[in-house]
Write a protein that binds this DNA or RNA. Structure first.
Length: 115
DNA sequence: CGTCTGACGATAT
DNA sequence: TATATCGCCAGAC
């Protein structure tokens, strides 16, 4: 075990449901780390476990750059396998897939009031 | 024990 | 929207 801090992070990440994604900052907050998102990223880098780390992305809705480019492709592939689609720019719609806010509520403005 | 680095985030420009 | 900077913590040396 690396430390309680990391363990806490791993627990949160393990809770992310398939088809949803969470940001590093969001996880840091849920783990009681405040806004220290960097620790989440570093923890995941050192996890080396069967964690769904691919469901964790940065606040821009993109897959963060890392030392291993190969891992980026793997993450994108895994997300796609779970139904998370990517933009042409490689961005994900956080509004749509963000963990805890993925409630389908299109609310289509069918007819705007003209009064 | 000092220094550097890293899978981030928010703010300013 | 993209780029530049700073802050923050935990490991590796």
């Amino acid at each position: 075990m690396a430390s309680d801090t990391y363990e806490r992070i791993y627990q949160i990440v393990d809770r992310i449901p398939a088809g949803s994604v969470a940001t590093y900052g969001q996880i840091a907050r849920l783990a009681g780390l405040g806004g220290h998102a960097r620790l989440v990223g570093y923890a995941l880098h050192a996890c080396g476990r069967s964690l769904p780390w691919h469901r964790v992305i940065n606040s821009r809705g993109q897959i963060s750059d890392r030392s291993n480019p190969h891992s980026q492709g793997l993450q994108a592939r895994r997300l796609a396998a779970e139904g998370v689609t990517l933009d042409e720019r490689g961005r994900i719609s956080l509004d749509r897939y963000r963990w805890g806010e993925n409630d389908p509520q299109p609310d289509p403005w069918e007819e705007p009031p003209t009064s």
